[in-house]
Design a protein around this nucleic acid. Structure first.
Lengths: 221, 221
DNA sequence: CTCTCTTCGATTGCATGCACTTCGGGCACG
DNA sequence: CGTGCCCGAAGTGCATGCAATCGAAGAGAG
């Protein structure tokens, strides 16, 4: 419960990376005791959204550039696996649900950026859930959520419009049962998201003093 | 700590699927309070090794046949990704560590079955860790551990000898830097493990009355 | 004015207490 | 002999208390 709320707050960037998450405050805010808040933090930590440091306040993770690349790599493989699994096997009601979701994406297109990012993410999770593979759903959810974080860090001028058309194309390929086409569409979709979004971080724009000084520190060691 | 111990107990089948895990007993056994035991159970649950039912004693999960297939599917993809990532990029010390591990596998070959299964599993996790991708390590670990459980359920006459030679072949392909060869070796390795191990459960041999009756129950709903 | 040390409030780590739920054995009854 | 019910023991869900730890602000020295 509180877990879900926290997760949403994080992926919609209401809590930006680095934000502190004291157990008391969370508990008080949600009307539960520290025990519950603590449990939620543990869950989120195991999903890689929260960083738990011993004896210190938990914080929203700040994914590194390397993390981002890793995660996108894995995501690419998993999502290709998903479309391969479900291509041509979707019921008409499932297709309808997908199309309805894309419609919702289009409506939110000019709304708040965080919402459209979340919707785009949920589209992928919806696809995953249609494989009826709980593990796959969990992994893709987790990875997709972390991609949200990453996108918020490394891509200021996010524009998701093109993504919507690609979603539609993927649905059509799935409907036709053309697994290879769907896989290559998904591939290029994710690839374009990654390349559009993941602009190599300008080392100068360090959010944190430590990050900026890291390369210099190496010389002195 | 207690988490690691429990995990090992589960994957070595000291605790077989369905075994009850009361918080008090665990805490007492490990000399900690319920709080810690409870936390460990939560972790293991999020790894899919333990099933947490509200107000009821936690139990070691009993993977279904369908779960097993799903997990092997995903594993196949992830492990192919791993060898693709590390082919030709391993240092000589890494190669040495891999070979040493295989040697350990060979030594344990005629020891207790559970140990050789665990070693075989750890070989794959070792490979994953060489990608330097924390997420990949976590997923493969989790999946591999669950495969242990699955193997213990669906394959009585387990023989891992052939697996050892395949491990060696994979190492050599990685050393040569032949990503495609390594991937196809890994593919056939996992495929043979899956097919050797995952004998379709004979419906008659229901461990549990509920399992047997499950298909019939659907009609009545 | 800056740097360091110290101290105290803030926060976590863990254990324990209490209320509620579930389980299992015994007992009455068919 | 089998079946249903009931109640005590066992176990979980959650809150809270206490000690240990961290960190930020303030005092003091240079």
């Amino acid at each position: 419960m509180i877990c879900r709320a926290l997760r949403r707050a994080i992926i919609e960037q209401a809590l930006e990376p680095g934000a502190k998450l004291p157990e008391d405050s969370l508990g008080e805010r949600f009307g539960v005791s520290r025990t519950i808040a603590r449990y939620a933090l543990g869950q989120l930590a195991s999903e890689g959204l929260v960083e738990l440091r011993r004896n210190r306040i938990a914080v929203v993770v700040t994914p590194s550039w390397q993390d981002a690349r890793d995660i996108f790599d894995i995501r690419m493989d998993l999502e290709r696996l998903i479309v391969r699994k479900i291509a041509g096997k979707l019921s008409s009601s499932q297709i309808a649900r997908l199309k309805a979701h894309v419609e919702a994406e289009r409506e939110a297109e000019h709304g708040p950026n965080a919402v459209s990012i979340r919707l785009a993410t949920e589209f992928h999770i919806m696809l995953a859930s249609m494989t009826n593979s709980p593990v796959l759903v969990r992994y893709v959810s987790e990875i997709a959520y972390r991609c949200c974080l990453t996108l918020s860090l490394f891509s200021r001028p996010h524009s998701s419009e093109c993504g919507i058309n690609e979603h539609i194309a993927i649905i059509e390929a799935l409907q036709e049962g053309d697994a290879n086409k769907a896989m290559s569409l998904m591939h290029s979709h994710l690839d374009s998201v990654a390349n559009r979004a993941l602009v190599e971080p300008t080392p100068a724009r360090g959010r944190d003093l430590l990050d900026v000084l890291a390369p210099y520190a190496e010389e002195t060691t």
